[in-house]
């Protein structure tokens, strides 16, 4: 391992626990419609105001992976390579659906980083937790993203 590699790993380790600033997002009706069309799910609860009003939710809701659209803020000084990041896994945990038209307060936390040795060399894992709260501070959704850097890509992560 070259000194540059070690430098990058150290920088990552020291940033565990770092948080982004809070960013306000709106669950926009047009954005939900375009997203629903792009994923091929024309559920009336996403698109049809009258059908949604008659539902238990009383209003339009957003698809479960819609938080992909949000700006969750970025973590200052986190050195990520410009390309070559592999998306290894993703989860969403909800307390209720997202409602169209509501404002949510979002931020990102860098949760953990670790290495795993595999047949393709050492892989560096980065885990991010991204949350969206309602305007009274109640959590609506927690997103967990697992990103993977190959050895070659991780070597580009330096100060």
């Amino acid at each position: 391992m070259s000194p540059a590699d070690r430098g990058g790993d150290q920088v990552l380790d020291e940033l565990v626990g770092a948080r982004s600033p809070i960013v306000r997002n709106t669950v926009e009706r047009g954005a939900v419609r375009k997203f629903a069309q792009a994923i091929g799910d024309l559920n009336p609860l996403y698109l049809d105001e009258e059908a949604a009003a008659r539902s238990r939710w009383g209003r339009l809701i957003a698809p479960p992976t819609f938080p992909r659209v949000f700006d969750f803020g970025s973590i200052p000084d986190l050195p990520l390579p410009p390309a070559g990041i592999i998306h290894g896994g993703q989860s969403y945990t909800y307390t209720r659906p997202l409602f169209v038209g509501e404002d949510v307060l979002c931020h990102t936390m860098f949760r953990e980083t670790y290495e795993r040795r595999g047949s393709a060399g050492t892989l560096r894992f980065l885990v991010f937790e991204r949350v969206a709260d309602d305007s009274s501070g109640e959590r609506i959704v927690t997103s967990r993203d697992v990103l993977i850097l190959t050895e070659k890509v991780a070597a580009g992560v330096t100060k």
Binding site: R56, Y92, R144
Partner: peptide
Amino acid sequence: LASGFIEYFQ
């Protein structure tokens, strides 16, 4: 989704 919601999806 009219009868409930997705609580966890991984």
